[in-house]
Simulated scan of single mutants.
Amino acid sequence: MRVGVHKVKMGNPGDVSDLKRQIEEGSIKPHEIVAMIGKTEGNGGANDFTRGFATQSLSLLLAPYLDLSPDAVAKRIAFVWSGGTEGVLSPHTTVFTRSEAEPATGKRLAIGIAMTRDFLPEEVGTMAEVREVAAAVRIALEEAGIDDPRDVHYVQVKGPLLTPALVTDAESRGAKLVTNDPNGSKPYARGATALGVAVALGEVDEADLSDDAIAKRMDLYSSVANTSAGGELRNCEILLFGNSSKAGGDLRIGHAVLKDVVDGDAVRAAIANAVGDDADPAVALDRVKAIFAKAEAPVGGMLRGSRTTMLSDADIHYERHARAALGAVITSITGDAKIFVSGGTEHQCKPGEAPIAAIVQV
């Protein structure tokens, strides 16, 4: 396996011109595309339709190249979107390709992809979702050729949240939901999928979990999960990234934990971890191919002894504040604003902390 990583600019959620250019130039081969992870300029909420629009637009572009219908393209390729490009964050997508290659000397970047079944509304944010995601992560781990869970550095999960239509459906059947608030379902949805990752990788014992623990027991978490929820999905898509001795190519991935949204040292640590823990991250900056991170408001609104208004601002949700802040910090270090920064860290690192992963060329 050889994994390729390609950044694609997007002028709007329907703009496919840069991907088309890279395909026509031969740098991206459509038949090798297995996944995309991107940012759109939507609001990131339950009514953010830019994510579905972006998937539709890219599927329409790729359909003739792959001789498939647009719907079949969306089933063949895992599309993961996060809405919200506040501050300097640039709308884009990262295209992942996979091809045959002989194993390299040393471990190299590998990717495993798996999907869960569709969930009923009453299953979103519950142990049913935790268990299904855990099973899918194990499948992705095997597909990636990774034997040791410690070689996993980033697991991206995109799953469903509750929409008004799904809430109405459940209520008509007398089914109990984790909440009747669509936007309020995001912490449960993100939390359940993160705990699924934690269970599969041995970070959390399933015996310690229950429906009541989801979005409440924040001492239970994964350090490598990065989860999002959207109304455009009914199932969960799992993209697992790690380093495998069975993979070829010249890319590696590493991760670190952000202590807060201005933790530049953690950005450098993730880069160094990808190249090798003894590497000088300053030297490796020009080798960075992609950065993926979560952003969280500081606990109690206090950032290194100073009060912030992230948690008390009635006009701008804290996730938008946090994404903008972290995006600026990462961009100031790497010089590239085409980075994936998503909000909401339920069961993704300790409260106030957040995961960050870096893919580099070695």
Results as ranks from 00 to 15, higher is better:
274 A>M: 05
114 A>I: 07
341 V>M: 13
196 G>T: 07
160 P>I: 01
189 A>I: 02
253 I>G: 01
317 H>N: 13
84 G>P: 13
320 R>K: 14
98 R>W: 11
76 R>G: 00
234 R>P: 00
263 D>N: 10
227 T>W: 08
177 L>R: 05
61 L>E: 09
254 G>Q: 05
232 E>W: 02
8 V>T: 04
225 A>Y: 07
169 D>P: 00
1 M>V: 08
58 L>R: 01
328 A>N: 15
114 A>R: 06
328 A>F: 03
360 V>R: 03
340 F>E: 11
288 V>F: 06
74 A>S: 15
312 S>I: 15
314 A>D: 14
168 T>H: 06
258 L>M: 09
291 I>Y: 00
324 A>C: 03
7 K>E: 07
347 H>T: 07
306 S>E: 14
152 V>H: 06
277 D>A: 06
107 K>A: 15
34 V>W: 01
70 P>Q: 13
143 E>D: 15
328 A>R: 15
180 N>K: 15
107 K>H: 10
1 M>S: 12
209 L>S: 00
215 A>K: 11
121 P>I: 06
286 D>P: 00
216 K>W: 12
122 E>T: 04
361 Q>T: 13
43 N>C: 07
42 G>H: 01
341 V>P: 06
66 L>C: 07
134 A>P: 09
136 A>Q: 11
77 I>Y: 11
79 F>C: 05
223 S>H: 10
218 M>Q: 13
57 S>C: 08
103 P>W: 06
20 K>G: 00
342 S>V: 13
276 G>D: 05
55 T>A: 11
58 L>I: 10
48 D>I: 11
299 V>A: 13
233 L>C: 02
112 G>V: 08
211 D>G: 14
10 M>A: 10
224 V>K: 09
68 L>Y: 10
300 G>D: 02
348 Q>K: 02
53 F>A: 12
190 R>I: 12
121 P>G: 12
124 V>Q: 07
351 P>H: 04
166 L>P: 01
150 R>K: 13
98 R>D: 10
237 E>K: 13
232 E>Y: 12
354 A>Y: 06
185 S>E: 07
300 G>K: 02
137 V>M: 06
237 E>D: 04
131 R>H: 08
211 D>Q: 04
66 L>G: 01
139 I>K: 14
113 I>E: 08
128 A>D: 14
82 S>M: 11
64 P>W: 12
40 T>H: 12
226 N>R: 09
317 H>E: 12
43 N>Y: 03
135 A>Q: 14
168 T>R: 15
68 L>F: 05
39 K>I: 12
47 N>M: 09
238 I>G: 06
282 A>V: 02
143 E>Y: 03
162 L>I: 04
92 H>Q: 08
268 R>E: 09
211 D>T: 06
57 S>P: 04
105 T>I: 05
167 V>M: 12
48 D>R: 08
173 R>A: 12
340 F>R: 05
49 F>E: 10
319 E>V: 13
